[in-house]
Write a protein that binds this DNA or RNA. Sequence first.
DNA 1: TAGGCCATCTGGTCCT
DNA 2: AGGACCAGATGGCCTA
Length: 192
Amino acid sequence: MSYKLRNEVRTLRAAETLCSFSPALSKPLQETGGTSRDTGGNLPGRQQRMFGRKTSGEQCGRRRMKANDRERHRMHNLNSALDALRNILPALPEDAKLTKIETLRFARNYIWALTETLHMADHHPHTAASELRSPGSVSSLEWDSASPAESWSGTTADEVSCRTLTIDPPSFIPITIYLRSLHGENVTRNSW
DNA sequence: TAGGCCATCTGGTCCT
DNA sequence: AGGACCAGATGGCCTA
């Protein structure tokens, strides 16, 4: 089963479980006593906090559920943004969905690579392209998900993560992006 | 089985 | 007052 599919299944299951918490089903936590996914744990202590307040427990419970709903929505938005970010990063094998942290680090290093490409093109307009196109000249140093600071100060081979090495980046792509962007093309992952 | 990743809940804090 | 944001906690699923 692919990573993507697995996550979708997991999300669906989570959503199913969530229904047992849904006010729409008139089954508050208090009644169900939790499910197989007792997030937050320590029931019924949490129920007590959620619904057992001295000041109108029912109202408090409604507020809490609304807040949970907003938080869920906020996190979904955040994940959507991360997905969008993944989609504009260079192509990866279909199954190799980057984790959140990998996506952020990869994006930062990718931006660094693009910036570097621009600098080289500015200072060595005639040689930049050929240099950058040679595999390993620049790509191996920053294509990984090592921490950002290392990107700017120089990354050692040891700092390249194993996960990244398995990605096997194409021979240097950023120059292609740069050239395409010069022509006003909207470069996306699918256009590689 | 341990560890990584994830979704969710929760209470606190800040802002409008 | 209510919403947004955040970090900690928790439990499920998956892989090595």
